[in-house]
Simulated scan of single mutants.
Amino acid sequence: MSTDPFDAALDLLRRLNPKDTAVNVTRLCDLVPSLTEDLLESVDVPLAVKRDRKTGREFLCCDYNRDGDSWRSPWSNEFEPPLEDGETDSVMPSEKVRKMEIKANEAFDVYRELYFEGGISSVYFWDIDDGFAGCVLLKKSVSPSAKSSGSWDSIHVFEAQDRARRAHYKLTSTVILNLGSSSDNLGGMDLSGNMVRQVEQDMPVEDDSSHVANVGKLVEDMEGKMRNLLQEVYFGKAKDVVGDLRSIAPLSERNRDQAAHREMISGMSK
């Protein structure tokens, strides 16, 4: 039975270290060039950073602002590096959508400073039938010391379909988290992975500014929920595993507490 090359590539990426996804995608594209477009559209990788030569501001790159080997800046609405044949209409938002894109970038620049205290944000909108779509990108990288580092990349892709005084929003959010540290005594530790969540919601709309506020609320709520999941579920589980490997209190005390707990549960059941 033959295996589809694209499915095989995705299956391989799922088995490799999430920290090296960007490098592995590039290698797969070099190995099988026919899969390049499908892989770039389907696989979420840590966001790359470019600088807008016109404004001097940094912006984030993804498949939604890409045209070949150039990326559109949300600040100047121009491509970096410039396209040889000029800007193509197929990837440029209409005037109405571009105005909303500018407002959204201003709003999420404030959001980024409030919640991340640094980092980079970029918002891109484009036209679709019966409405518009867009993506909100946020990235922050830190290196507290020479032997520890971390990065947070969030990619929020949405569609907004206009209805009578309301709009239907469909949001797909991805968070890519990379944490690493090393020491001479313990060696290296790498904690990397991603999380994907979706939500659909109808919200009231009075004018174009309402869309920016609605998208901002959806992204804010989703990021809060995903951060809590990462902290409570994933890091909580890692803490439990470490606790099972090496207890802070002597094992004799821990075993005594567990025995008392089991005795109490047994007494309650009777």
Rank of each mutant, 00 (worst) to 15 (best):
V233F: 12
D30A: 11
I155L: 08
D38Q: 14
A160L: 08
D162G: 13
A213M: 07
V242M: 10
T3W: 11
E87M: 06
H211R: 02
G187R: 03
D69C: 05
T55I: 03
R57Q: 14
D52L: 02
S266L: 10
S2K: 09
M195R: 06
M100A: 11
E206T: 05
N255Q: 12
A104H: 03
L60W: 06
A9C: 08
E263Y: 07
R15I: 04
K217N: 13
N214W: 01
E159M: 09
S192V: 00
A260E: 13
Y115A: 11
N194R: 06
S34K: 13
K170T: 14
D127N: 10
G56I: 02
N77A: 11
E95I: 06
R262Q: 13
R246N: 14
D221T: 06
T172F: 08
E87A: 12
D4H: 14
R165S: 15
D184L: 12
I265T: 13
D129K: 13
S70D: 05
N24R: 08
Y124M: 07
E58A: 15
Y64C: 07
M203S: 04
K139W: 07
K239W: 09
L251S: 09
K237A: 15
G216I: 04
H261A: 14
V157M: 07
N178C: 10
F116R: 08
L12I: 06
D130P: 00
K270E: 12
D11A: 14
S269N: 13
R165F: 14
G150D: 03
S34I: 04
M268D: 10
K270N: 12
